[in-house]
Amino acid sequence: MLTLQCPYCGVWAEETELHAEGEAHLKRHGPGSADHDFESYLFMRENPKGVHFERWRHASGCGKFFHAARCTMTLEVFGTYPAQTLEPPQDIKDKITAKYPGWTWREFS
């Protein structure tokens, strides 16, 4: 079972206390954007075997959204971080690089 630490309340919460909220770091394309951008914002998602960035919500806890970096294959969790950011923190990226040199995920590597 997945256990993630909520960066807001510091609790090590297991999966049943959390709610998966899809992919992290989506860039919103709203009204007036190109059709292609809008379509990819709505529908196109990463589905990697390996390093992945996800949004989670501590639903039965403090209720906050946060981000998690983990490997979908080994279920290893590289870290969690607050949602008020546009990209993963450097220390988490370094951790992933140590384990999976040359990894990429969307525009991050």
């Binding site: 309340c9 609790v11 919460a13 049943t16 206390e17 639903a59 039965s60 806890g61 403090c62």
Partner: peptide, 10 residues
């Protein structure tokens, strides 16, 4: 204090 769930409810 800990906010969590009791069986199926918060």
């Amino acid at each position: 204090i800990r906010r969590s769930r009791i069986a199926q409810v918060p």
